[in-house]
Simulated assay, not measured.
Amino acid sequence: MVQYPTARLDASFAALSDATRRGVLEQLGRADASITDLAEKFHMTLTGMKKHVSVLEQAGLVTTEKVGRVRTCKLGPRRLAEETAWIEAYRQLWASRFDELDKVVEELKQKEKADGRKRRG
């Protein structure tokens, strides 16, 4: 299997493990937003939203820029290519295993059918 940067994957999956943070990413996918706007949208305190944004920022999924008193958030430069590749590698592994299991089940069905014919004959 391909080796992936563990710390980066850990940070990404930790950031994505929270529903609020996934929601923030969805929201920022539509338009940039201030932390205040995000806090209102998700019905939470500014402090709580700042913590969520900080986790996303550390993972490289969000960037922020402060202009005056307003901190604006936007999607970061990362496009989750490594995370997608990691998931795809395991999807392929499991698909292969299920294909093999299907073959075994089919062989057992055929054997069972053949054994049933022998008993009747």
Score class of each variant (00 low, 15 high):
residue 35 I to Y: 03
residue 9 L to N: 00
residue 110 Q to A: 14
residue 101 L to D: 08
residue 66 K to F: 07
residue 32 D to L: 00
residue 22 R to K: 04
residue 85 A to W: 12
residue 34 S to W: 01
residue 98 F to A: 11
residue 39 A to C: 05
residue 90 Y to Q: 12
residue 94 W to M: 11
residue 68 G to Y: 09
residue 21 R to A: 01
residue 89 A to P: 08
residue 105 V to G: 03
residue 75 L to H: 08
residue 9 L to I: 13
residue 112 E to G: 03
residue 38 L to T: 10
residue 56 L to C: 07
residue 27 Q to G: 03
residue 82 E to R: 09
residue 103 K to Q: 15
residue 84 T to S: 15
residue 28 L to H: 05
residue 33 A to Q: 05
residue 106 E to G: 02
residue 34 S to T: 12
residue 90 Y to D: 11
residue 74 K to Y: 05
residue 42 F to N: 00
residue 13 F to C: 03
residue 70 V to D: 03
residue 25 L to K: 00
residue 60 G to S: 13
residue 75 L to D: 02
residue 44 M to P: 08
residue 117 R to F: 13
residue 8 R to H: 04
residue 56 L to A: 08
residue 51 K to W: 05
residue 65 E to N: 15
residue 109 K to I: 02
residue 82 E to P: 13
residue 9 L to Y: 02
residue 100 E to N: 12
residue 29 G to W: 09
residue 104 V to W: 07
residue 32 D to Q: 13
residue 112 E to Y: 09
residue 7 A to V: 07
residue 87 I to D: 03
residue 112 E to T: 12
residue 48 G to V: 11
residue 109 K to V: 04
residue 2 V to E: 14
residue 57 E to A: 11
residue 24 V to L: 06
residue 43 H to Q: 11
residue 101 L to G: 05
residue 103 K to I: 14
residue 37 D to S: 05
residue 15 A to L: 01
residue 113 K to W: 11
residue 92 Q to C: 09
residue 91 R to E: 13
residue 95 A to G: 10
residue 95 A to P: 10
residue 104 V to T: 15
residue 51 K to T: 09
residue 91 R to Y: 13
residue 94 W to L: 12
residue 9 L to H: 00
residue 74 K to D: 11
residue 21 R to C: 05
residue 67 V to Q: 11
residue 67 V to A: 10
residue 5 P to F: 05
residue 32 D to M: 05
residue 119 R to W: 04
residue 100 E to K: 15
residue 101 L to A: 10
residue 118 K to M: 12
residue 62 V to F: 06
residue 37 D to Y: 02
residue 37 D to R: 02
residue 50 K to T: 11
residue 17 S to M: 04
residue 11 A to T: 01
residue 69 R to T: 14
residue 48 G to P: 00
residue 82 E to C: 11
residue 53 V to Y: 01
residue 24 V to Y: 08
residue 70 V to K: 10
residue 4 Y to M: 09
residue 100 E to F: 09
residue 99 D to C: 12
residue 106 E to R: 13
residue 85 A to L: 15
residue 119 R to N: 09
residue 119 R to T: 14
residue 35 I to R: 05
residue 103 K to V: 15
residue 6 T to F: 00
residue 28 L to P: 04
residue 11 A to E: 01
residue 2 V to Q: 15
residue 27 Q to H: 04
residue 7 A to S: 06
residue 28 L to V: 03
residue 49 M to E: 12
residue 6 T to I: 08
residue 45 T to S: 15
residue 95 A to Q: 14
residue 56 L to P: 09
residue 57 E to P: 00
residue 12 S to D: 08
residue 77 P to Q: 12
residue 67 V to F: 07
residue 46 L to V: 14
residue 23 G to Q: 01
residue 23 G to L: 04
residue 61 L to D: 06
residue 117 R to S: 05
residue 94 W to K: 13
residue 90 Y to A: 08
residue 117 R to V: 13
residue 5 P to R: 04
residue 64 T to A: 08
residue 63 T to S: 14
residue 5 P to H: 03
residue 14 A to D: 04
residue 50 K to N: 14
residue 111 K to A: 03
residue 19 A to I: 10
residue 84 T to F: 14
residue 44 M to T: 15
residue 22 R to G: 01
residue 36 T to Y: 05
residue 35 I to C: 01
residue 21 R to D: 07
residue 22 R to F: 01
residue 96 S to F: 12
residue 5 P to L: 09
residue 47 T to F: 11
residue 6 T to P: 00
residue 6 T to V: 10
residue 4 Y to V: 11
residue 37 D to T: 10
residue 97 R to G: 06
residue 33 A to S: 10
residue 92 Q to E: 14
residue 52 H to N: 10
residue 16 L to S: 03
residue 7 A to M: 04
residue 57 E to L: 02
